[in-house]
Design a protein around this nucleic acid. Structure first.
Length: 371
DNA sequence: GATTGCTACAACAGAACCTC
DNA sequence: GAGGTTCTGTTGTAGCAATC
């Protein structure tokens, strides 16, 4: 993709209004990065080759996820600098912030002047609880130049012709205006304190969020800023309205939905073939008047349904959906919550007979193997 | 069932400590 | 003092389990 060198330089040096920069990053610049990240040229350098093993235990998977996250962060900077070179810009580059502090990356001129600053977060889509953490205090964030980029990635198994077995694939990237996201986070956090504060208060010191339990203060435990806990739709305390905040709320709610749905899809593609023995998987849609709703995924006689979508319907419509699924040949349903705990049911018409709860996707498969 | 508080565990850097 | 080892704190990602 060819960029206009002048506007590229202007955006990256933080000379435009934050909203304008946000839209440019979201719609133009970061999609180009993702497109290049997903090329074989990049993926071959992150691939797991025949004979190589990674840990399967969640505890030890953490280091692999950390490493993928770090590499994607570096690749972003490398590719972003390549884009500058491709467009004839010699006086700008992306650099790594070596000190362990916000942000991860900065745009600099060759004379050292600073432009945009970017914090990179990576989430593996099938992780039951995506917990990447944006806990930078608002005082440390510059409203004009600072942004958060979130990559949603998953292992992608490649065809036989390609020499590696699997490699990370970025399914989607999201960009947030850091200052507004932090504002939203704090608005929610401060308006929803724990019940057992005692005579203390929640708040911040110079470096951390500070919690209080029964009057005793402590450094916040690490939940503050978890990306999927930042904001909830229709929260009872609404922040003051602004265009930027409106964008952030809309983008955040969309981000949350996409992250959960994408992980659910990847799980369906991972697990359904192991259950049914078939690689033929297709989406389940429900048509209501002129609207079409996504419900889940089906392979042969087995359906995966996402609770957060299914529960939106009235009892009558739920029955219609179940009959529709049954008519399409399914007699087994697994319902999943947003953290991918599942419940197994036998389906007969619109009647669901509960068989078993599976706390985690891996137990679902283990249970099948044991049976 | 959803939410929230707490814990796990890796890499890494730098300080503190130990031995020669 | 040099060099090696251990400890501590920070960053990062995520899962478990009690509570709402």
């Amino acid at each position: 993709m060819k960029f206009d060198a002048l506007s590229l330089q202007k955006f990256l040096m933080g000379e435009c209004e934050p909203l304008e920069t946000l839209v440019w990053l979201s719609d133009i610049f970061v999609p180009e990065i993702v497109s290049r990240l997903n090329t074989n040229d990049v993926r071959q350098r992150l691939g797991i080759y025949a004979g190589e093993k990674i840990p399967e235990n969640e505890r030890n998977l953490t280091d692999v996820r950390n490493r993928v996250s770090l590499i994607l962060e570096y690749e972003l900077a490398r590719i972003a600098t390549c884009i500058l070179e491709d467009n004839g810009i010699q006086n700008l580059f992306w650099c790594y912030v070596v000190a362990n502090r916000f942000p991860d990356l900065e745009v600099r001129t060759t004379s050292g002047e600073r432009g945009l600053r970017v914090e990179v977060k990576c989430l593996q889509s099938i992780a039951e609880e995506k917990s990447a953490n944006f806990d930078t205090l608002k005082k440390d964030i510059h409203p004009k130049t600072d942004f958060v980029v979130v990559f949603l990635w998953e292992w992608k198994y490649d065809s036989q012709e390609i020499k590696w077995n699997r490699s990370p694939f970025v399914h989607k990237a999201f960009v947030f205006h850091a200052s507004t996201l932090a504002y939203l986070r704090d608005w929610y956090w401060l308006n929803k304190p724990p019940q057992d504060l005692g005579d203390g208060l929640q708040g911040f010191d110079l470096r951390y969020a500070v919690n209080c339990k029964n009057g005793i203060y402590n450094q916040e435990e690490g939940n503050y800023g978890k990306l999927l806990r930042i904001w909830k739709k229709d929260f009872e305390y609404q922040p003051p309205k602004s265009t930027l905040l409106y964008h952030t709320v809309t983008d955040y709610l969309s981000f949350k939905k996409i992250v959960i749905t994408e992980g659910f899809k990847n799980l369906a593609y991972l697990l359904l073939p192991k259950i049914t023995g078939s690689n033929e998987i297709y989406p389940i849609h429900y048509n209501d008047n002129n609207d079409q709703y996504f419900i889940g995924w089906q392979s042969k006689n087995v359906c995966f349904i996402l609770n957060s979508f299914f529960s939106m319907f009235s009892k009558k419509r739920k029955n219609d959906i179940l009959v529709h699924i049954f008519t399409n040949g399914a007699n087994k349903i697994y319902t999943f919550n947003d953290r991918y705990d599942s419940t197994e049911y036998d389906l007969d018409g619109s009647q669901m007979k509960k068989i078993k709860k599976h706390e985690k996707p891996k137990y679902l498969i283990q249970g099948l193997v044991e049976n």
